[in-house]
Simulated scan of single mutants.
Amino acid sequence: MSDILFQPYRLNKALELNNRILMAPLTRCMADDNLVPTDDMVAYYARRADAGLIISEATIIRPDGQGYPNTPGLFTDAQIQGWKKVTAAVQRAGGKIFAQLWHTGRVAHPYFFGGEDVLAPSAEKVEGTVPRRRELTYVTPKPATLNDIQQLVQDYAQAAANAIEAGFDGVEIHGANGYLIDQFLHHDSNKRSDEYGGSPENMSRFALEVTDAIAASIGWEKTALRISPGAYFNMQGDARDRQVFDYLLNELQNRDLAYLHIGIFDDSMEFDYLGGRASQYVRSRYHKTLVGVGGFTADSASQAIDAGEFDLVAIGRPFIANPDYISKVRNQQDLVTYTDDMLATLV
């Protein structure tokens, strides 16, 4: 392993990271019943502050964005105050932290927000039941109206402003993994025939409007985005998706994101319509700061960064098992192996 992982990395004039290892967003479902971060969450994030950048667990922008129990929000004053404790603790420990902004779209469930409509690009239902609430079956969503979409863009921008008020160093827009923004970007979930569907330009419109609105609110240097060109989670792939992401990546290349983050659970997965791995595809079209993720070890990440495949790496489950992941890797100490029973508590 080269020492490239532990070299500082300047995202932009405003932000320099102490190393190239990011803590990936990890949904833990440990907020209180009002979706406010708890003291256990404060301690959990602070223990991992030596990551170059912590990306928070996905955090919902408004009530109807909720699809899992006890996921934190950023739309009430109590939630903002709760996150202030988290960000202050991380920053006291010398760390930096971005909030990942989330709306689950058709993966939301009315159980969590009082029986109102589930919004999505189209009336295309996800099959199956809600994780951690297996008694709940997904419902057919209501296609978002143009007014709904305009309000969603405003609510993303407001959540970003709330994140800055809460002390975050920036935000990562969750545009990946089969959730609302990603649903607009794939033909499996977007059957619209208006200005938000049909063509690559139209299908990319919502993602770009959200990104531009957030950047206008908090600045490009604090605005990042995660995308999933390869459909693999709550989504079926379609060869036409390639044209959508060709267009989207060209548009993003002409903007000044803090970074672009690939959304994939396992970067060894290959997609016929992308010509291989998602990270290879994105890197061939996006030449600014790129974050790789999906099963990397410190050794394999170091090799990939040396080879120019991406610039930063996000590490997920090993950070759950090893709060001291950075120091262990730096000192070449053995890591505790992640197991699913570790999800029961915040350590």
Score class of each variant (00 low, 15 high):
190 N>T: 09
280 Q>G: 07
295 G>T: 14
228 S>I: 03
282 V>D: 06
199 S>D: 11
262 I>G: 12
324 D>W: 11
208 L>F: 02
276 G>D: 07
253 Q>A: 11
298 A>F: 07
302 S>N: 15
325 Y>P: 00
297 T>N: 11
290 L>N: 04
203 M>N: 08
260 L>P: 12
247 Y>T: 00
245 F>N: 05
291 V>E: 01
322 N>F: 06
193 S>Q: 10
247 Y>F: 06
322 N>V: 15
200 P>K: 04
287 H>L: 03
324 D>Q: 15
301 A>P: 07
325 Y>H: 03
228 S>Q: 08
189 S>C: 04
181 I>H: 15
252 L>D: 01
206 F>E: 06
200 P>G: 07
292 G>L: 01
251 E>R: 09
254 N>L: 11
301 A>D: 13
238 D>K: 15
313 V>Q: 08
323 P>I: 01
207 A>M: 03
327 S>L: 13
299 D>V: 14
282 V>H: 02
254 N>P: 12
320 I>Q: 10
267 D>Y: 05
308 G>T: 05
271 F>D: 02
235 M>V: 04
212 D>L: 04
183 Q>A: 08
299 D>W: 03
252 L>R: 05
325 Y>K: 01
318 P>I: 04
227 I>L: 08
295 G>L: 05
259 Y>N: 06
267 D>I: 08
265 F>G: 05
316 G>A: 15
247 Y>D: 01
261 H>R: 02
273 Y>P: 06
303 Q>K: 13
306 D>R: 00
213 A>N: 03
290 L>D: 00
190 N>H: 07
296 F>H: 13
299 D>C: 08
276 G>A: 05
265 F>S: 14
280 Q>F: 09
217 S>D: 08
180 L>Y: 10
311 D>L: 06
272 D>H: 06
272 D>T: 07
298 A>V: 02
327 S>A: 11
296 F>C: 00
184 F>H: 14
232 Y>C: 06
243 Q>P: 03
303 Q>N: 05
269 M>E: 12
206 F>K: 01
299 D>G: 14
267 D>H: 09
238 D>A: 06
240 R>G: 13
288 K>G: 05
303 Q>F: 00
322 N>T: 14
220 W>T: 06
322 N>K: 06
210 V>S: 15
230 G>M: 10
322 N>E: 08
218 I>A: 09
201 E>Q: 15
187 H>P: 02
256 D>G: 01
211 T>H: 10
194 D>Q: 01
260 L>Y: 01
291 V>N: 12
251 E>N: 02
240 R>C: 15
247 Y>M: 01
302 S>D: 11
318 P>Q: 12
255 R>I: 08
279 S>K: 00
323 P>A: 13
199 S>F: 03
200 P>V: 07
216 A>K: 14
218 I>M: 04
326 I>V: 15
206 F>C: 11
315 I>D: 02
261 H>E: 04
212 D>C: 08
182 D>F: 06
229 P>C: 01
191 K>T: 07
303 Q>W: 00
221 E>Q: 13
223 T>S: 11
215 A>D: 02
239 A>T: 09
255 R>E: 07
324 D>P: 02
261 H>D: 12
205 R>F: 04
327 S>D: 15
183 Q>N: 10
217 S>F: 01
288 K>R: 09
